[in-house]
Amino acid sequence: MSHATTLAAPARRRAGDGGDRLFAGLCLGAGILVLLLLGAIILTLFLGGLPAFRAFGAEFLWSTAWSPVEGREKYGALVPIFGTVVSAVLAILVAVPLAFGVAFFLTELAPPWLRRPVGTAIELLAAIPSIIYGMWGLFVLVPLVQQYIQLTLGDALGAIPLVGFLFASNSFAGTSLFSAALVLAIMILPFIAATMRDVFGQVPAVYKESAYGLGCTRWEVMRGVVLPYTRVSVVGGIMLGLGRALGETMAVTFVIGNANRLPTSLFDPSTTIASIVAMEFPESLMGSLKQSSLLALGFLLFVISFIVLAISRLLLRSRLKG
């Protein structure tokens, strides 16, 4: 920081002056390019979606229509938005406890020699491309869901009044909201676990030792010392996972069943914004109302995930400062 100011002031007319200005300009230009890039993405998606917003108005947001019949074209965003939000939230519900368990294991329970290999393995889980998760989900996980989980849960819980309909479905393909949430949960687990592990590791040892010295058990230290200390960053890590889950495309496209109607059960097929764009955009006609509706959906997804990721950044920043 200080070297920047001392450099600029006294150095007048030196051999490197021109090069300095050029290089600083290049760096600044690249930085501004990144800002412009984000602006351009938002703008192009919005402009592309404008014809759809114009044609359907605000109704686009809560209409469930998806009819490409010429002359009576009508598109609505409710089903993809619902599928996106529900699958991402379900994934978070599954992933957060597991990620917490992994992070706690890696910071407190595991013997030191085990920490690095297990930590690396969890990080490799994050490196596997999403299309591989999709294939694995379709060929390994979906049959398991179809044969074991759906029938068991449907029999056991389907009869419960009020909530039973969530588990009873007429679709037995296995590709469903439930499968999508499960695959998403596995995909975001390493991201959340890595963030949690890093912030747990930043709790000063003295705090934990004091609590242990009072005779606290590991769980009491976690609940009474570590979690309150890291609360903000943990929520930031969860939001980061949520942001990833909202925009995940290929893995979801493989296992969600891609049906454009409102699901009433966990085991009904559904669709998400990202997967409907991946499925229908390449085959839609250039400049058609359908293409515009898909761009409008993309714009909505961008707004949703931008908000979630921005919150995550703000929450995680305190960790970098503290």
Partner: peptide, 23 residues
């Protein structure tokens, strides 16, 4: 710039596809 770059790091990649499609 740092904030925007971090958001782009986790932004849904399909939207970048839509962007380049339009552009």
């Amino acid at each position: 710039v740092r904030f925007v770059s971090d958001v782009l790091l986790s932004a849904p990649s399909i939207l970048i596809g839509l962007f380049i499609y339009q552009l």
